[in-house]
Design a protein around this nucleic acid. Sequence first.
DNA 1: GCTGCTTATGCACTTTTTTGCAATTTTTAT
DNA 2: ATAAAAATTGCAAAAAAGTGCATAAGCAGC
Lengths: 249, 249
Amino acid sequence: MLKRERQAYIVHQVNLHNKVLSNSLSTEIDVSEDTIRRDLLELSEKGKLIKVHGGALSHSFHDITYPAKKVYAKNNKRIIAEKAVKLIKEGMFILTGGGTTIIELARSLPLDLSATFISGSIPAIVEYMHHPNIDVIVIGDKLSKNSKITLGADALARIKTLKPDLCFLGINAIDIEHGITDNDWDVVQLKQSMIASSRKVVCLTIAEKINTIQPIHVTDLSKIDILITELPNDHPILQPFVAAGVTVL
Amino acid sequence: MLKRERQAYIVHQVNLHNKVLSNSLSTEIDVSEDTIRRDLLELSEKGKLIKVHGGALSHSFHDITYPAKKVYAKNNKRIIAEKAVKLIKEGMFILTGGGTTIIELARSLPLDLSATFISGSIPAIVEYMHHPNIDVIVIGDKLSKNSKITLGADALARIKTLKPDLCFLGINAIDIEHGITDNDWDVVQLKQSMIASSRKVVCLTIAEKINTIQPIHVTDLSKIDILITELPNDHPILQPFVAAGVTVL
DNA sequence: GCTGCTTATGCACTTTTTTGCAATTTTTAT
DNA sequence: ATAAAAATTGCAAAAAAGTGCATAAGCAGC
């Protein structure tokens, strides 16, 4: 059995049963436990599973165990959120994606803001729900366990029927040459659809992700109206984006 | 059972019952009490629970900032939930509404159950999301602040396209003469649509609501397959429903 | 074919983790 | 106060992980 084949089998087993044991995999595939361990190490580095003593667990299992995960770069995300909040005016229709930056934005909204928020992100919806004057429109479809947003043809179709004033997008990689890129096919579809529908597109990202590239192209910079990072807008790293016509806050 | 898996189970149990006993966990998982104690120690260091003499308590129990809001007749609802869980078989498509009884049902689902749950209730979706093997389909539409479920034409249209095996409905009033009645026009639309689409309709209610009436008619008893209350099924108050052809659990 | 290179795998060995047990101390309840 | 239950501590055995190395397999270029 080839290495790739073996690793694919392991990932399949993890997704199926949510756990695998090193020693049973070893007898099952008939390789040494060392090899299995090395496979598990590689796969966990790629984020396909969570390696634990004696085997591995699926990612979704890990989420259950530790739902109160600490948010990376939380302070920076709060700075970003506060800049983003200023763009929101009473009565606007606002489309948002998911991700920790968007959640931080949702938490930073003034309690008495009255506006309409549209999203397929369950954590974001839960936050919007707590605001008495915010109307929430839920985008329905199959819920993705990883990203906790609804993904699929239904969601795409619904977004196409909307024309929100503003779209807030948390992004994973942005680059002056390639624009916005990402690593999940379905999420990319959704983001493209959101960008196409919205009057104004606002991208939120921590500076760390600037000038990084992911494998799938989402959109080039021309479709982006505003870019928000935690840095001051005269920071050198941001100047190429200003030159490309993006408003940087 | 892997260590992490065991700890995940303990956290799940704590969140579910608000307390766990070291010795019952020990016999349940079949490891020594020492091991359980060590797990509880680790979990409490991570802030997942509060370790006390003889076991552990859930954090929400002691956390002053987030007092566990008391659900009316919670114990009865748990009894109902546990009867309802028995109806669920692997791989089923299950449509559920909202309400505290349904949430209790969601919390009582076996951790490893694999099935597909369809709902527009945000609190229910959040619960389903925590189960690694449950696929969640979100019904989108405008979110009602009161009931925390999506309501509207879109939701109705989507439900009409489904044919779930089972439908769990928390109900507000049931009466031998008028059947099921309710007090919110939009919710009634939704419930009617859910009933019409499903192969089997299961109604959940605390006994207190039996023989009460609300202003809007949802459906008569003939459409109801199963009625679940916290009472034993030979209780006198339930007999008229048995006579009317409803299976009472 | 062969050679040199990288990659993959298994083995022997050491280290770490996990777990259960016994002895002792602390806490709880009667 | 005294007995029972639970916690702590130290320790040892077993399982798993990590490490270094030798062998084997695959592959480009000659």
